[in-house]
Design a binder for these strands. Structure first.
Lengths: 226, 226
DNA sequence: ATTAAAACGTGATAAATGTCATATTTATAG
DNA sequence: CTATAAATATGACATTTATCACGTTTTAAT
């Protein structure tokens, strides 16, 4: 079993606040899973009874609508915890978590997290802060959804993906999303998303290499996004 | 000075988890303010250094966009805390809080809240849960904004206002919002909001008595909202 | 390697919603 | 009480965006 002690990822989460003893407890209670691209970690309505610490890969939290569209609420990468909210609220999952790229996650039982929360102030504060951060993001997203056009949101999202996940050696965005997923993030129809990518390509602000995307003119993209 | 001990509102917030001693501390550190309709409790960018406990009235949390529109993120009534998120995140306010109806609020300094958070597990868990609840709501709102039409969102919002604030003796909604504010909640242009209210009126699902609104046919409204 | 399925791309069109103009009603200040 | 501003209301029109239809390309399975 891998020791959480040596896990770099832990340094990025609220788990960084744990002391030696607690980390040992954590290592003994966790279970590691490999999730392949497209597979679910948990689905809406499921009771998880714990959280998932993302060690590697990329995941999406989304909700399926009546008309079959999948609205993506949040992307997660290594160093984030999944399922905190439902666990704290004592509710089944409100969203479905799926892998966008192959993932490795560690499941941490609820009892452990609650134990840490109650005995380690630094941990509880950190955890609280991450939820607060999520809330702020969500509120700002909500505002952007209403106040910005699809074009602006696409530009904004491309910049975000670049910032958050970085680029490969060939300058293409590191996260590879389908057009449908990208549309699911900005909240639009897949066709509209494709069309606007085409426009951006013609304008020269991005370059489309197959399904991959290169941001050619960040400055103009930023201007479009405002 | 009013004692928090006797304040009914306290029973509704995370503050219910405080013990006798803590309530005395709370009562000694709090400051009560009266906020008139239209006035701000705090504005975006302001550092508040504490939270506001809403004793009476109705408030809105909103953000002004570049084009002058005010997107309302959340309505608050008695028994809710305002400004928790910014305080926990150690950031200036992300949103502006204004009174929609005359309010009475108590300011509680950050030091007190943090103290309670660190020494009272029940309190910290409750506080965490309210933030989680906010997060869930915000995520669901986000999804609704994308997946539902303006008409659906208006129906949904009217039902929400009815549920959350109740009605007067004459069956009109208790919260009195301007059409502009209502538009700010559902995220649309004021004119569109007015037009749809008119349509609902003609359909007989609501009745407009001046600026006041009566829900005449909740069942149909619910059908429209889905 | 072949075939089916999924993803991508584009045009035509329809539907939803925003914007602008302007009239009317209601609220508010002096 | 009156003047003025603000809020409500509605029409005409423009714009954005979704939907449908269809062809092409890529991916995955056998």
């Amino acid at each position: 079993m891998n020791k959480c002690d040596q896990c770099i990822v832990r340094q990025l989460t609220s788990l960084q606040a744990l002391n030696k003893e607690e980390v040992i407890k954590l290592a003994n209670s966790k279970t590691t899973y490999k999730i392949k691209k497209g597979e679910a970690i948990f689905e809406e309505g499921e009771v998880t009874n714990g959280v998932f610490c993302v060690k590697d890969g990329v995941g999406k939290l989304s909700k399926l609508s009546a008309n079959g569209k999948d609205q993506i609420v949040k992307l997660v990468k290594s160093g984030e915890l999944l399922g905190q909210r439902s666990m704290i609220s004592n509710e089944p999952a409100n969203l479905t978590a799926k892998a966008v790229a192959d993932m490795e996650v560690c499941f941490i039982p609820k009892s452990e997290i609650i134990g840490f929360f109650n005995t380690n102030n630094q941990f509880s504060m950190k955890l609280m802060q991450t939820v607060c951060e999520d809330l702020k993001e969500s509120e700002n997203d909500k505002i952007a959804l209403v106040q910005k056009t699809v074009k602006q949101r696409l530009a904004e999202t491309l910049l975000y993906l670049h910032d958050f996940f970085g680029e490969n050696e060939d300058k293409t965005l590191k996260v590879q999303l389908t057009r449908e997923e990208l549309a699911g993030i900005i909240g639009t129809a897949t066709e509209s998303c494709i069309r606007l990518l085409s426009d951006f390509n013609k304008l020269g602000v991005i370059e489309l290499i197959g399904k991959k995307i290169v941001l050619k003119d960040v400055k103009t993209l930023k201007k479009i996004a405002d």
